[in-house]
């Protein structure tokens, strides 16, 4: 992916103490904020939506190979909790092992989808979920290839606003925009 090469880690990433939870509360607060911002930026530029705590440590994001430093699972949990507090993360399970990283809120995703539908004259017609996620028409959109469940949540949000209706048919999902 082209965006992968373009992504530059912030200076903190090459600063060893960044990978250890700071004892001083003020410093720790700043540290958590910096990590939150970094995670959101990293996920956005790589178009990722799901974080798996078990696999997180093997990601270059939390493991700086050149420094030979990595964040402990506990610290990762702490940062993720901070993200949840600011509304940028939603857990998928009660064990808090997997979660959505919402670098764009569900409502904003919904807006984006709706604008695409209107701009492309898709109102009053039926689109399949597959079409929205992987179709040729959405290749340039940010929601192309996004997490299917997350897209479904955005569509549900549109449904509540009466801007769309989700149709489920033999396990195939479609949506009609209005």
């Amino acid at each position: 992916m082209a965006s992968k090469e373009r992504f530059e880690m912030p200076w903190q990433y090459n600063f060893p103490p960044f990978f250890t939870l700071q004892p001083n509360l003020d410093t720790r607060k700043l540290q958590l904020e910096a990590w939150s911002a970094l995670i959101l930026k990293y996920f956005r530029s790589h178009r990722l939506h799901i974080i798996d705590v078990n696999e997180a440590q093997s990601s270059p994001l939390f493991h700086n190979v050149s420094l030979n430093r990595k964040l402990s699972t506990e610290t990762i949990q702490l940062i993720l909790e901070e993200l949840r507090r600011t509304g940028h993360l939603e857990w998928m399970d009660k064990q808090k092992r997997r979660g959505w990283i919402l670098w764009r809120s569900v409502d904003d995703w919904a807006k984006l989808l709706y604008r695409w539908a209107i701009d492309n004259g898709m109102s009053n017609t039926v689109c399949t979920l597959y079409d929205l996620l992987h179709g040729h028409d959405t290749a340039d959109e940010e929601f192309h290839n996004m997490d299917q469940d997350l897209m479904q949540r955005a569509l549900k949000a549109l449904e509540l606003q009466k801007k769309a209706e989700v149709i489920s048919m033999d396990g195939n999902i479609g949506v009609k925009f209005f």
Partner: peptide, 21 residues
């Protein structure tokens, strides 16, 4: 529901199309 039978038919076809793709 604002989804008509017609919409369902179209959806069915589009699902088929997706499967071929």
């Amino acid at each position: 529901s604002r989804v008509t039978e017609h919409d369902r038919a179209v959806l069915q076809l589009k699902v088929q199309r997706d499967k071929v793709r």
